[in-house]
């Protein structure tokens, strides 16, 4: 409706979405937090695979020991990367600047999300020597490995969407981090006895059942096994969409408050 009345700006090739997306991406390349994320992710992905995962000792040409630890790495690293997304904008007052620019709330939410997701994707792509190694040592099923990468990337996106949404609730990055860690942990282990037992003890079998279907871990493992079920992929996509939508609503509601 408003694009009709936008005569104030003669040249409209730039876009609010691209502006925020590029600024965020640029931010990852110049801030130490993001580099720390990549380095720690790459180092610990390698260390876990070879030591805890017994990559060589197993004598199998696959990347199962590599992907197995991704949920746990993301659980800590993604909330750490995402905690500043909105909390920092709120603390420094730049949120007021951003939200009074001609950009829609959902565009800002999505631009921030995609920039961070792309950055994580870059870090994930840098683990390619692992793939080269296993291909050098044997004949792995590269389809399964590709599925593993896809599942890992989707899971990172789900954690990221959760963490970004929770970051908008506070101006403290520490609180944002802890909140995101707790909620991600809950979703990761939704099907695990750790979460299920207390619910069953409370007699809420339906809630427990519904929650177990939301388990990030189960869906990730299904994809990482090489079985590309549409349901699993839809689960991740819907999770991401849900949390981004919630993020947009919270942002809009803050205007009313």
């Amino acid at each position: 409706m408003s694009s009709m009345t936008a005569s104030a700006t003669p040249d409209r090739r730039g876009s609010p979405f691209a502006g925020v997306f590029l600024r965020e991406l640029h931010g990852y390349l110049i801030t130490p937090v993001a580099w720390l994320f990549s380095v720690i992710f790459l180092l610990s992905a390698g260390a876990f695979t070879f030591y805890l995962g017994a990559f060589f000792e197993r004598g199998q040409a696959d990347l199962d020991p590599f992907f197995r630890f991704h949920p746990w790495l993301y659980l800590v690293l993604v909330p750490a990367l995402a905690m500043r997304l909105w909390a920092e904008e709120r603390r420094s007052g730049t949120l007021e600047l951003l939200m009074t620019l001609p950009i829609r709330a959902w565009q800002a939410v999505l631009a921030k999300f995609l920039a961070a997701w792309l950055y994580i994707g870059g870090a994930l792509a840098l683990t390619f020597p692992m793939w080269l190694t296993v291909n050098y040592l044997g004949q792995p099923d590269n389809g399964v490995i590709l599925a593993g990468y896809l599942g890992s990337f989707l899971m990172a996106g789900a954690f990221l969407a959760i963490s970004e949404c929770l970051s908008v609730l506070t101006r403290s990055q520490v609180i944002a981090f802890i909140l995101a860690l707790a909620v991600c942990f809950l979703f990761l282990l939704a099907g695990d006895p750790l979460v299920q037992q207390p619910l069953l003890a409370l007699g809420s079998e339906r809630v427990a059942d519904a929650l177990s279907g939301l388990s990030l871990l189960a869906h990730f493992q299904a994809i990482a096994r090489g079985v590309l079920d549409l349901g699993d992929i839809a689960y991740f996509v819907l999770t991401i969409v849900f949390w981004l939508a919630a993020n947009t609503l919270v942002l809009a509601a803050r205007r009313g408050g």
Partner: peptide, 18 residues
């Protein structure tokens, strides 16, 4: 420069006139 370029891009001010 980066900050102003960001604001210009969000406002759609690119090209020669921008």
């Amino acid at each position: 420069a980066e900050f102003l370029a960001f604001a210009a891009r969000v406002r759609g001010l690119t090209g020669v006139s921008g």
